[in-house]
């Protein structure tokens, strides 16, 4: 099957999957109880409670509520967030941009360090560099993020005073427009080096904390895959042809070792998104993770449903992308069969 046909077929199935996911998301959140609690206070009389229910359509049968919710989503209305005190659709893009920026920065850290360290270790199997990389990888995977994050905060923010907390300096942030919501990109568009530096400077610690955990996974996978590839006959053949070891490693073995690693990178995306919750709370990063943590604790179901639906759809798309990249890297993979 042609790649284009495969993508087209997957995209056709996507709406059905999304409807299925939306029903599951709606049902699961309602199993936890009515979403009314976030809007109530004990001073309210029964008639006032009924008024609130009517305001949010919660006095309707559940299936009507689902249809209203689904209809709202199609119209861009995702409900009202009790936690953010604003329509979800107003806040979600801002929070999403903040989280995506953090996840992307952490992803870059993880990719760069993971592939570099994995290659470095795999090419020097059972030698000192391999052991050192293992220590780095194991510590990255085993250090609790909240502890590692707070440790970095104490040292670099509180004690040395060289790293900031939050996403931006409020004054610098307010000095530029934010057409994309991605602070780094907006700073470039505004041609403001000061804002760009502010964005990067605020990203370093949280991206490092978040990316470090993912680095470990990628590095270990890269190392194992590379070790396996280096034992293959085609590597011996390449060496026998007289190719330099560097070329054998980079052009042959590493490329093939990337195939299983890419699958892991796809899964790592989920790890990064989940990780943002802890990281955003610790670093006061105003993204989706922190918003969702508050929403979970306070039972803000409207926000939660949007988030779960969004991440589900995102995962469907990421899986599709991973499949396509996988096929490109390994021609033995046949799509659609």
């Amino acid at each position: 099957m042609q790649l284009r046909d495969y993508i087209f077929r997957r995209l056709l199935v996507l709406p059905i999957l999304i409807i299925g996911v939306s029903i599951v998301v709606f049902t699961l959140t309602r199993v936890g109880g009515s979403p009314i609690g976030i809007y109530l206070s004990h001073e309210m009389t029964p008639s006032e409670v009924a008024e609130i229910q009517a305001r949010f359509g919660l006095d309707q049968p559940v299936w009507v509520q689902y249809l209203q919710w689904a209809k709202g989503i199609l119209q861009g209305d995702f409900g009202y967030s009790g936690v953010a005190a604003a329509p979800v659709s107003d806040i979600f893009p801002l929070k999403l941009a903040a989280t995506m920026e953090l996840a992307a920065a952490a992803g870059c850290v993880a990719l760069f360090l993971g592939i570099t360290l994995g290659t470095f270790a795999g090419a020097r199997r059972n030698r000192l560099p391999d052991h050192i990389t293992r220590i780095v990888a194991v510590s990255g995977a085993s250090l609790p993020q909240f502890w590692f994050g707070i440790l970095l905060l104490i040292v670099f923010w509180a004690q040395l005073g060289i790293a900031p907390i939050g996403r931006s300096d409020a004054t610098i942030f307010a000095s530029i427009d934010h057409p994309t919501g991605l602070y780094t990109i907006d700073a470039i568009l505004a041609a403001s080096p000061k804002a760009f530096w502010d964005a990067v400077w605020h990203l370093i610690l949280p991206a490092l904390t978040l990316g470090y955990g993912a680095t470990a996974i990628i590095a270990r996978m890269m190392r194992s895959a590379l070790v396996e590839e280096l034992q293959q006959d085609y590597v011996d053949a390449a060496r026998a042809k007289g190719l330099a070891e560097k070329i054998v490693l980079k052009r042959h073995a590493r490329r093939n070792a990337l195939v299983p690693t890419v699958t892991v990178i796809g899964l790592t995306f989920g790890f990064l998104l989940q990780g943002t919750i802890t990281i955003e709370i610790i670093y006061r990063w105003p993204g989706l993770g922190r918003w969702m943590a508050d929403s979970v604790l306070r039972g803000d179901q409207g926000t939660l449903m949007t988030y779960v639906l969004f991440t589900s759809v995102l995962f469907l798309l990421v899986n599709l992308i991973v499949d396509v990249v996988y096929a490109n890297l390994d021609r033995r993979v046949t799509l659609g069969k």
Binding site: G33, P35, G37, I38, L40, S41, L297, G299
Partner: peptide, 9 residues
């Protein structure tokens, strides 16, 4: 909190 508020109200 929301569960409590629901019960409390």
């Amino acid at each position: 909190e929301s569960v409590f508020d629901d019960a409390h109200a």
